[in-house]
Structure formats: structure tokens, C-alpha cells
Design a protein around this nucleic acid. Sequence first.
DNA 1: CATGCTAAGCGTACACTGTAAACATCGATT
DNA 2: AATCGATGTTTACAGTGTACGCTTAGCATG
Lengths: 204, 204
Amino acid sequence: MTETEVRKTRARSPEDREAERERLCRVAARLFVAEGEAGFSMRALAAQAGCSPMAPYRYFETKDDLLAAIRARGFRRLAEALESVAAGDRRRARDIGEAYVRFADENPAEYRLMFDLSQPDDARYPDLVEASQQARLGMSRYVHEMVEAGVLAGDPELLGYVFWAAIHGLIVLRLAGRLPRDHDFETLRRTTLGALMRGLRAPD
Amino acid sequence: MTETEVRKTRARSPEDREAERERLCRVAARLFVAEGEAGFSMRALAAQAGCSPMAPYRYFETKDDLLAAIRARGFRRLAEALESVAAGDRRRARDIGEAYVRFADENPAEYRLMFDLSQPDDARYPDLVEASQQARLGMSRYVHEMVEAGVLAGDPELLGYVFWAAIHGLIVLRLAGRLPRDHDFETLRRTTLGALMRGLRAPD
DNA sequence: CATGCTAAGCGTACACTGTAAACATCGATT
DNA sequence: AATCGATGTTTACAGTGTACGCTTAGCATG
């Protein structure tokens, strides 16, 4: 099946163009998740999107560009997921950590791609840089708050990276199947974040 | 140039066969480092190794198998690097962290491949599982010692994973270009490990 | 020594990839 | 109505992993 029908005519408005770009991106992301990186090809995308093999190239110069768009989309969704925690009343570090892990949990293929080391450098894609910054800020805002509240001591930005790296490290080790058992993950996460909180606590 | 000359004859002993396997693996690793994942192909390897394109398939069933062999080799080298710290007199956690980071620093391409999330699961390759376990144990031995010495409190295995994930998280974020500036990396590492040590310290 | 057997390496071939280039086709603009 | 530029198609090419069958060399056996 080929998504919601789209007219075959030409000469779109900028909005239409953007919409088609996003549609392709969405279809591509779904296909990527379903088939894995190896099974994902431009031709397969075209088939799934109901167009000829070269059509997507009108919207993405290159396969790498398309993948970068998918990653940017992933970071935007991650930022949203963290945002939605912010909207809640309980604003504890634990919640944000949980939300982050939950995103990786529910979107493993996307998370993999977002942090895939063999993908080209972000710097080539301003959208991606923007989205990834946004997601990171979604995390580090809490660190800022805790520093300002005198709970943690140190450079907030630095501490933001520390927390991010620790939780990300756990996630990628799990994704790579390098952690012993999945049901221990909760413990690992709690231990790590707890230790960091204690170890970085402001001396009162 | 085609590595050290090897006779073109057939019917090798098991030792010769193993030697040739290792030679191919070494050449492949070097090529991989030089050309990057994208530029690395079985044909290029064959050219570099001075044999016909299909010859390496006598030693590795598949390209993935070959890459797995390279990764196993990487983990063995990592384990050695950690071992060499053990030989030194000062056995502090800091040394092992430094050695780990230094390995990633000096072998970025190899480290990338070793932890590349789009690589097939380790479980298919017993050698790789063995080597990676060995490297991990090289790290967690120190944690064990510290727990036994009453410096840290908790399940040693669990704590081993906590430290590993934290340092690995920092490294992959840097490899992905997601850390602000490289000269801050020292600070990040010190802050992270220091905080974990403090936060996991045994209450005396 | 002659003979077959087996493993090593070679060459060819196939299905598939990303994508360059030429062409067709339609909507909007002049 | 004529033109033009953007969109989509078709075709084509170079490069990939690898299946398959052939050749050859050294061994164990008659």
C-alpha cells in the first residue's frame, strides 16, 4: 500500500514540496525500522512511496541526506518526548532519565540510526544540528535547574554532558547486546544516575 | 605493495591456514582504517592482499564474518592495552580509565567498528564474544579490587558496567562529534569518573 | 611411480546498489 | 497562448557482495 493518495501532477507550492519531503521521510523511517539498515534502499523506498526509483532524489540529493533527515526527525521526536515530561508536574531528574530511556526503548532502530557512528558528520546538516541541540537542551535544562536550586554543584553545561553520556552509554551497550540481562537495566540506570547525583551534589 | 610475500601454492597446514587468516585480517583492518567503512570492499581487500577477489572467501564466509574478525582483533588489542596498565605499579582507577580512552583515541576507526550498532549481533561469533568479555574483565578487575578494598560499595559486576557505560558514552559522543570541544574531554572524563567514585564510595 | 583426492585460488556471472543524465509532462507565469 | 521551470520517468553505468564452476598443486594411496 502506498500511503495516502497524492496527486501525480507537478509544480507544487513550497508547502506542498515540504509536505512531500516529510511524507517521504516518514515512509522512509517506517521502512528503515521495518527492514533494518541493510534492507533499506532508495528503490525500496520509492516502491513503498509509490513513485519511480529516482523520484525521491528530487527531494533529497543523496541517500545520506535522506538518512540525515530521518535522524533529524528522530531528534525532534526525542525533544518532544522530553518536553512532555517537562509539562508534567514532577520535575525530578529521574523522570527525565526515564523518558529518555523510554524513547530509546520504544524506538530502538531510530535511536541506533540517530547515533550511528558510521553516518556522516552532523555538521553537513544544519537541520540535524539544530534538532540534536534541541534534544540535548531538553535534557540539560533539568541540570541547570538543579544547579540553580543548589542541589548540584558545577558547570551546568558540563554536567549536562556528563549525565547525557552516562545514560547514552548504557543504552548503546544494551543495543549492542553487551549488557548481561535486560531486566537489570533498571538497576543499572538507577545506580548510575544515583551515583552521579550523589557524586555531584553540592556540599552543603 | 602486497605484504610479505607468500607462496602461491596450495594445501596448507592448519597453522598456515590460520596465519593466512590473520594476515588477511590485518590487511583488512589497515585498509578499513585507511579508507573508512564506505571505501572498504572485499575487492579492495583482495587487491591490497595480492590475491583474486574471491580468495578471501576461502577464509571468511562473508564480509560480515571478516568484519567480526576485525572487531575481535580490536577487543583483543584493547584487552592488551588494559593489561599493560595492570603490569604497572600504580593500580588506580584513573589509570585504567586513561588507558581505555587512550586506546579509543589512538584507534578511532577500530573503536567505531567495534561498537558499530549496525554490525550484526556478537552472538553469532564466539571469538568475538570471548574477546569482548576479556576486554571487559580487564576493566572490571579494578572495580572488584576497589570493592574488596572497601573503597567502593555494591555488586562489583554491576559497578563494572556502570563505569564502562559512562566512559564509553563519553567516547562515542565525541566520536559522533556531539561534544562541544575536544580539549574539554579530559575534564569530562575526570568529572564523570570522579563523581561515580564519590557517589559509589562505601560509607565508612 | 602413477593415480586419484582435496583444498586453494581464479574467473565469470548475477542480482542489487546509489545515482548521473536525458527525456517527458504538466502548472504557473508572461 | 507560449514559455519555462519544476517534477517525475526511463535508461544506463560503475561498483558491490557473493554463488558457482574451473584449474591447479601437493598429498596419500595403489
